[in-house]
Amino acid sequence: MRTHAVVDSPCGPLTLVAEGDALCGLYMVDQRHRPAQLTFGSPDPGADVFARAEAELKEYFAGHRREFEVPLVFAGTPFQQLVWAELRKIPYGTTISYGQLADRLGKPAASRAVGLANGKNPIGIIVPCHRVVGSNGSLTGYGGGLECKRYLLDFEQGVLF
């Protein structure tokens, strides 16, 4: 059974979605590939998983957290799940290219597929798909919008402190 809550962030309101005691979604208002609202389940802003996720997000945006510990659960293809697991290994404050991410997965010819899986990441920010950039360092897209991606990268690199 899914439930959801909305929390504030410097990137605007974030919709948190949970299945049981694990977070399965974090979506921005105008996010590309945002599921229909009716798939988020009923509102339950007092649920422990949302309190934990909100607290960790506040710590992150205050500059006091670099890794998230809230329990996560993913619904996606096996390849998407591999990509999303690898995204979680990208260190705070760094970026890699889609090609480098494909190399890390042992699939150097799959940078396009990696990009598609990256774009369908259901748990933005916590699963840091914003840390993946074009081969020339350009911001090539972000489900939450390029402004938010730029904000997150600048924030993590200390530009906003």
Rank of each mutant, 00 (worst) to 15 (best):
Pro45Phe: 08
Leu26Asp: 04
Glu54Asp: 12
Ala36Arg: 13
Tyr92Trp: 14
Gly41Met: 06
Ser135Glu: 15
Gly134Lys: 11
Ala47Met: 07
Ile123Val: 15
Gly137Ala: 05
Asp103His: 12
Ala36Pro: 00
Ala117Ser: 14
Pro78Asn: 14
Asp154Val: 11
Lys120Gly: 13
Gly124Cys: 10
Gly99Phe: 02
Phe74Val: 12
Gly76Thr: 05
Gly99Gln: 11
Met28Arg: 01
Ala51Met: 01
Lys120Gln: 09
Gly143Tyr: 05
Gly46Asp: 11
Thr77Ile: 13
Glu59Trp: 10
Gly46Leu: 08
Ala51Ile: 02
Ala110Arg: 06
Thr77Leu: 14
Leu146His: 09
His130Ser: 05
Cys148Gln: 11
Lys58Pro: 00
Val133Leu: 14
Gly145Ser: 10
Ile96Asp: 00
Ile96Thr: 06
Arg52Thr: 15
Gln37Thr: 10
Gly46Thr: 06
Ala102Thr: 02
Ala75Trp: 01
Leu153Met: 08
Gly115Ser: 13
Val114Gly: 02
Leu116Val: 14
Gly46Ala: 12
Val83Gln: 03
Gly76Asn: 10
Asn121Ser: 03
Leu152Val: 03
Tyr142Lys: 14
Pro43Ile: 12
Arg150Ile: 11
Ile125Asp: 00
Val73Ile: 09
Arg52Gln: 15
Thr77Tyr: 04
Gly25Asn: 06
Ser97Trp: 09
Leu38Gly: 07
Gln100Ile: 03
Asp30Gln: 13
Gln157Ala: 14
Ala117His: 02
Gly141Val: 12
Lys58His: 10
Asn118Pro: 01
Ser42Ala: 13
Met28Glu: 05
His64Ala: 12
Phe40Gly: 07
Ala102Glu: 03
Arg52Ser: 05
Gly41Phe: 07
Cys129Phe: 03
Leu139Gly: 11
Lys107Glu: 15
Gly145Leu: 08
Arg104Thr: 04
Leu38Trp: 09
Gly119Lys: 13
Phe50Asp: 01
Ala113Gly: 06
Ile123Ser: 03
Glu67Ser: 05
Gln37Asp: 13
Ser135Gly: 07
Thr77Cys: 11
Phe61Thr: 14
Gly134Pro: 03
Leu72Pro: 10
His130Lys: 04
Val132Pro: 09
Glu156Cys: 07
Arg34His: 10
Gln37Lys: 07
Arg32Trp: 01
Gly46Ile: 00
Trp84Leu: 05
Leu146Gln: 13
Pro45Thr: 02
Val132Thr: 07
Gly134Ser: 07
Arg112Leu: 13
Tyr151Asn: 04
Phe40Lys: 13
Leu101Cys: 02
Glu86Ile: 01
Thr39Tyr: 08
Arg34Ala: 10
Asn121Ile: 02
Gln100Pro: 04
Val70Gln: 02
Tyr98Trp: 05
Glu156Gly: 08
Leu116Gln: 10
Gln31Ser: 12
Gly25Trp: 05
Ala113Glu: 11
Gln80Phe: 07
Lys107Arg: 14
Ile123Thr: 12
Ala109Tyr: 04
Val70Asn: 01
Gln37Val: 08
Ala110Thr: 01
Ala55Leu: 05
Glu54Thr: 06
Gly46Cys: 06
Ile126His: 00
Glu147Gly: 14
Gly93Arg: 06
Val133Trp: 12
Gly46Gln: 15
Leu38Ile: 07
Val29Asn: 06
Gly106Asp: 10
Pro71Lys: 08
Tyr151Val: 03
Thr94Asp: 10
Gly141Gln: 03
Pro78Ser: 15
Ile126Arg: 00
Ile125Gly: 00
His33Asn: 14
Arg66Cys: 00
Leu105Ala: 09
Pro122Phe: 11
Gly124Val: 04
